[in-house]
């Protein structure tokens, strides 16, 4: 009986954790994506200093989110996103606004693909 209780507890914990972690992952991705969208929208109008600050804020948010994401996602899936987001710093410092906007759109697409791969769906299950 003790084994069954332990098994049931572990199973409940695994199920709850899986759903909670998936939700937290999706929330994190959406939050970073929203910030990247915002950066993209202000990339043409903001001053250089504001642009650099915004970019650094996005990178900091991503690096923070990544600490959790690496615990629950395959690292290979995050490598390209990580590299692209961290390259935004140099791009914003150089003042190339078109390239910054382009990179932001690229990042949003990558984040969207990553989020859809982690979502609970029939395609991902099978």
């Amino acid at each position: 009986m003790k084994r069954v209780i332990v098994a049931l507890s572990l199973l409940a914990f695994a199920v709850v954790s899986a759903f909670v972690f998936t939700k937290i992952l999706i929330d994190n991705i959406n939050s970073v994506s929203a910030d990247v969208s915002h950066l993209s929208s202000v990339s043409q109008t903001a001053s250089e200093k504001e642009l650099v600050d915004e970019t650094r804020a996005v990178i900091a948010k991503w690096n923070n989110a990544q600490k959790f994401l690496k615990i629950i996602s395959v690292h290979e899936n995050l490598t390209e996103i990580n590299r692209t987001i961290n390259s935004l710093n140099d791009i914003s410092s150089s003042g190339n606004r078109e390239l910054l906007c382009e990179k932001c759109n690229e990042i949003r697409v990558m984040l969207s693909i990553f989020e859809s791969d982690e979502r609970i769906s029939i395609e991902n299950i099978f």
């Binding site: 084994r3 069954v4 332990v6 098994a7 572990l10 199973l11 695994a14 629950i72 395959v74 690292h75």
Partner: peptide, 25 residues
Amino acid sequence: DKGIPVLYAAVPLVVFVSFEIILSA
């Protein structure tokens, strides 16, 4: 593969053994 989180093994292990014990009982 170091890129695979430990949780990717832990969760399936827990599910397998839990189902095995519950169904055996």
